[in-house]
Amino acid sequence: MGSGWRFKAILFGAWMGAAYLILPMLVIFPVSLTDKRFLSLPSLDKLSLRHYETLLEPTWLSSIGQSIVIGVGCAIVSVTLGTLAAIGLWRMRSALSDTLFGLLVLPLVVPPIATALGMYGVWHRLGLFDSYLGTILAHSAWAVGFVVVTVYAGLSNIDRSWERAARSLGASAAQSVWWVIVPNVMPGILSGALFAFVISWDEVILTLFVTSREINTLPKQIFVAIRDNVDPAIASAASGLVVLTMVAVAFQGWVAARRQRGKNAI
């Protein structure tokens, strides 16, 4: 009886915490439907999509397109490097691998502003400042840690004898990785790619430090718009960011559920 009461109390606290974090974000949806020129909650009889139409202007469309291109590029680079790094660490099985793992995920705990300050000077010297490649690499340096974590977690469920069996049957090291390891960690790879894209899609601090006029992503455009004029179009753009993030989280939950069902089937 006492145990059941404690569980219900913990569950209630968890739901309250989730509501505290999520409900303030949901306010942007009604605000984005206001018919006024300033941020305000609309009345039910005066809902308007005029501020969503603002997102069809060239400046906003360009920023959305750039965010998609950079996000996809970040996902590709992060998945490639993060997957190879995770497989390499999994194969090493030594104290050094734990140290390298800590270094790879270090950007996750370092404040983005500190990373951005360091990249600002380096990117200028390398000629990467205010370029697609420079922005993608900057975002990937932060996102690759998420890929390493998700792929490494998937590798922990793989029997190492599978790779040895493949090698004994004549497969090369590359073939054993491609045909044995990668298919079995595909849920982790997909989760990592999703995290990398969402991180790049939402990132503004690194973008502000490594770009100037040529690169103008959606979060950067929102930041500039807030500084110049508090337009309800900002709420419309922000609602798109929130929806994409929610879809990504839902997809991640679906992937995790499928992976758990696969384990139970085995």
Rank of each mutant, 00 (worst) to 15 (best):
E57D: 13
T54Q: 09
S48D: 08
R91I: 02
V72S: 03
L169Y: 01
S239M: 11
S78C: 07
P183V: 15
L137P: 10
F209T: 01
Q260N: 07
A248Y: 06
Y52H: 10
W142H: 06
S94C: 14
G170A: 04
V69P: 00
V185D: 01
W254G: 11
I28A: 08
V247T: 15
P111D: 01
R50I: 09
G88M: 15
A250V: 14
I189Y: 04
A225I: 01
E53V: 12
G102L: 10
W5T: 11
H51T: 15
V198G: 00
F195D: 02
V31E: 08
V204A: 12
I234R: 08
S78K: 03
G121L: 05
A265I: 09
V122Y: 11
L33M: 13
F195L: 12
G121F: 13
N264H: 12
D228T: 10
E57R: 08
V79E: 03
T150E: 13
A114E: 01
N157I: 00
V69D: 01
G192V: 02
G13M: 03
N216E: 09
V149K: 02
L26A: 12
A116F: 06
L61T: 15
M119P: 04
W60M: 08
R258K: 09
F223D: 04
S168T: 14
W179K: 10
I87V: 15
P187H: 02
K8G: 13
V204E: 03
G118K: 07
A173F: 14
A248Q: 10
T115E: 04
L100N: 07
I266K: 06
I113S: 05
T207M: 04
T245D: 06
G134D: 02
L49K: 07
Q175G: 11
Q221W: 02
K36D: 01
L128K: 14
Y132T: 13
F129Q: 05
I113C: 04
R37V: 11
S3E: 15
M119F: 02
V149Q: 06
Y132P: 15
